[in-house]
C-alpha cells in the first residue's frame, strides 16, 4: 500500500471516531433508559408527577420547564441579538467594530457556572427585591405574574439563558448579514430607501434563512444549558403559569438528582430524560444546520 493511501485510511479512521461517538451516545442512552421506557411507555413524557420516593416518574414538568425557559430566553435575546448584528454590519464605524465584536465574543466565553454564580448573588436578589414585587403589585392579576417573589424561578432562568445565547445569536446573525451582497443594498438605496428601509427590504429578506438558523442554534444552546439554569431555577418539578414560580428543566433535574438516584428505575428515568433532551436538541440543531447551510444557495442573479 502506498504512503498516500495509508495516510488516507489513518485519517479516515480517526475521523470516523466522531461518527461512532455520536451513534454510541444515542445507543447508550437508549439502552440505559430502557427499563423506564419499558415501564412507563409513552406515558413517560406526558406524566405530570415526578416523585422518586413513590416511584412516580413523569418527565412533563421538566420538558415544560426546558421549553418555556428557552423560549423565554429566545424572546429576549432575538431582538437584541439581531439589533447588535445590524449595528455591527450596517451602522458601526469601522474602528469600533473589532472591539464590540470582541466584547460580544467574550460574553460567549464566560463559563456557564460563572453565569450561575452571578445569577444567584446578583440577578436573583435583584429580581426578588425590585422587579418581581413591582410586577406582582401592578400586574398581579395576570397569571404570568402571580405569587410570591421567590427570585429564583422561571423568570431568572430565562434571563440568564437570554444573556448566554445573546452572543451566539448576535455573532451568527452578523456573519449572515455580512454575506448579503452589496449590490442588494445599492439597489434599495438607489430606489430612494432610507437606511432602515434598505435593511428591511433588501438585507433582512436576503439573509432570512440564515437568521432563522441563528435562532435555532441559540435555541439549541438554551435547551441544553445546565449549570446556570440549575443554580437559579429553583428545581421544583411543578408546572405553574407564573414566571416567578420555581421550576425545573431536563438538564437541571439530571444535574441535581443523578448522583443521588437510588434504584434502577430512578436512574433509568433520568437517562430517559437525557434521551428526550438529546432528541429535542438534535432536532433543533438539525434544523439550524439545514438553515445555515442553505444561505449559500440563494439565487445570485447571473
Amino acid at each position: 500500500m502506498s504512503a498516500d493511501r495509508i495516510l488516507k485510511w489513518v485519517t479516515a479512521s480517526f475521523a470516523m471516531i466522531v461518527v461512532v461517538l455520536l451513534c454510541g451516545i444515542g445507543i447508550m442512552l437508549l439502552v440505559k433508559s430502557w427499563p423506564a421506557i419499558h415501564t412507563f411507555t409513552w406515558h413517560f413524557p406526558l406524566t405530570r408527577l415526578w416523585d422518586p420516593v413513590q416511584g412516580a416518574f413523569g418527565a412533563l414538568p421538566f420538558i415544560y420547564g426546558t421549553v418555556v425557559s428557552s423560549l423565554l430566553a429566545l424572546m429576549m435575546a432575538l431582538p437584541l441579538g439581531l439589533g447588535i448584528a445590524i449595528f455591527l454590519v450596517e451602522l458601526c464605524p469601522d474602528r469600533l467594530k473589532g472591539t464590540i465584536a470582541f466584547l460580544v465574543e467574550l460574553l460567549a466565553a464566560i463559563p456557564s457556572v460563572i453565569y450561575g454564580l452571578w445569577g444567584i448573588f446578583f440577578l436573583v436578589p435583584w429580581l426578588r427585591e425590585t422587579i418581581e414585587p413591582w410586577c406582582i403589585e401592578h400586574l398581579g392579576v395576570v397569571p404570568l405574574f402571580e405569587g410570591p417573589p421567590y427570585g429564583i424561578g422561571m423568570c431568572a432562568a430565562g434571563l440568564v439563558l437570554a444573556i448566554m445565547i445573546l452572543p451566539i445569536i448576535a455573532s451568527i446573525s452578523r456573519d449572515v448579514l455580512e454575506t448579503v451582497p452589496n449590490d442588494q443594498r445599492e439597489a434599495a438605496l438607489a430606489l430612494g430607501a432610507t437606511r432602515w428601509e434598505m435593511i428591511r427590504t433588501a438585507v433582512l429578506p436576503y439573509g432570512r434563512s440564515g437568521l432563522f438558523g441563528a435562532c435555532f442554534l441559540g435555541l439549541g444552546r438554551a435547551l441544553g444549558e445546565t449549570m446556570a439554569v440549575t443554580m437559579v431555577i429553583g428545581n421544583r418539578p411543578e408546572i405553574s403559569t407564573s414566571l416567578f414560580h420555581p421550576a425545573a428543566t431536563m438538564a437541571s433535574v439530571v444535574a441535581n438528582e443523578f448522583t443521588e438516584a437510588t434504584g434502577e428505575l430512578y436512574l433509568s428515568a433520568l437517562f430517559g430524560i437525557g434521551l428526550v433532551l438529546l432528541s429535542i436538541t438534535f432536532l433543533v440543531n438539525l434544523g439550524a444546520r439545514w438553515l445555515v447551510l442553505s444561505i449559500g444557495r440563494l439565487p445570485q442573479g447571473t
Binding site: P181, D183, Q184, E186, A187, A188, L189, A190, L191, G192, A193, T194, T201, A202, P205, Y206, R208, L298, P299, Q300, G301, T302
Partner: peptide, 21 residues
Amino acid sequence: PVQLRRQVGMIFQKPNPFPTM
C-alpha cells in the same frame, strides 16, 4: 439623498433584483 435618489434613478452593472420578491 433619499429624496434625490427618487429623482435620479440608477441601473447597475450586474442585474440586482431582490431575490426574495
